[in-house]
């Protein structure tokens, strides 16, 4: 089992992901430079937060055309597990590996704050170590995390159970107040149709130790390891 953590020049969550996966949980993890064209050595690919190439055009738009993302697409199309958080989620939408788009937060400000998510489904390679309906604490940190999709896509995501994380309040209600950015249906994270690609705006790698406020992100990495190793 080995995680590959993609590093774009403007990534800044790659070290935090490495810390959560390797230092806290002890799983092997290596950085993958954005010019890499092969991902053969890895069992799961992580796309970190940050500003990839500066995000001047649209968040993740240039990254979507980078050499490494061509390799990530192949990796995903062959059934490999791909996870993206924050800028990683934006890039996954820009490459078309996930449907929909992330636009500017509805209040037009950057938002960094703790928050609660409901785990809508534990039947994914990324969430098997949670239970359905769990409320987990993971912070957000983004200016463009407002998830949008057309009506048809949204209906499909909901009916197919592909909305995996939803912003909720402390009472597990998906209220407008719990929605930090204007996302449709309080959507915080979704999967692709095959279920092997997950993108989410919140930062599970920052929820890795109770000292920092939450360790609710750890089961996500553990789920990926279970999916790869079959529980081994």
């Amino acid at each position: 089992m080995k995680f590959g953590i993609v590093v774009f020049p403007g990534s800044w969550s790659e070290r935090d992901m490495h810390y959560a996966v390797a230092d806290v949980l002890g799983y092997p993890a290596e950085y993958v430079w954005h010019r890499a064209t092969s991902l053969n050595n890895f069992d799961a690919i992580l796309l970190p937060g940050g500003f990839s190439y500066g995000d001047h055009l649209r968040c993740g738009a240039i990254a979507a055309h980078s050499p490494v993302m061509a390799a990530v697409k192949d990796f995903a199309n062959n059934g490999g597990f791909v996870f993206g958080s924050c800028n990683g989620f934006q890039i996954l939408c820009e490459t078309g590996l996930l449907p929909g788009a992330l636009i500017r937060n509805d209040h037009l400000e950057f938002r960094c704050e703790p928050g609660n998510l409901r785990v809508e489904s534990s039947r994914t390679p990324f969430t098997s170590q949670y239970a359905d309906g769990d409320v987990v604490a993971m912070p957000i940190s983004h200016g463009e995390g407002n998830y949008q999709a057309d009506d048809e896509t949204l209906a499909m995501l909901e009916s197919d159970g592909r909305v995996i994380f939803r912003y909720v309040d402390e009472d597990n209600e998906a209220t407008p107040e719990a929605n930090p950015n204007g996302s449709l249906n309080n959507i915080a994270g979704i999967t692709n149709e095959a279920g092997n690609v997950l993108g989410m705006m919140p930062h599970p790698e920052r929820a890795c130790e109770s000292l920092l406020g939450s360790s609710d992100g750890n089961p996500l990495w553990q789920s990926i390891v279970v999916a790869v190793d079959g529980g081994g």
């Binding site: 800044w12 070290r15 959560a20 950057f110 890795c208 130790e209």
Partner: peptide, 9 residues
Amino acid sequence: RQYDHQVQN
């Protein structure tokens, strides 16, 4: 809350 105060863990 407009500043990322958590990055670097």
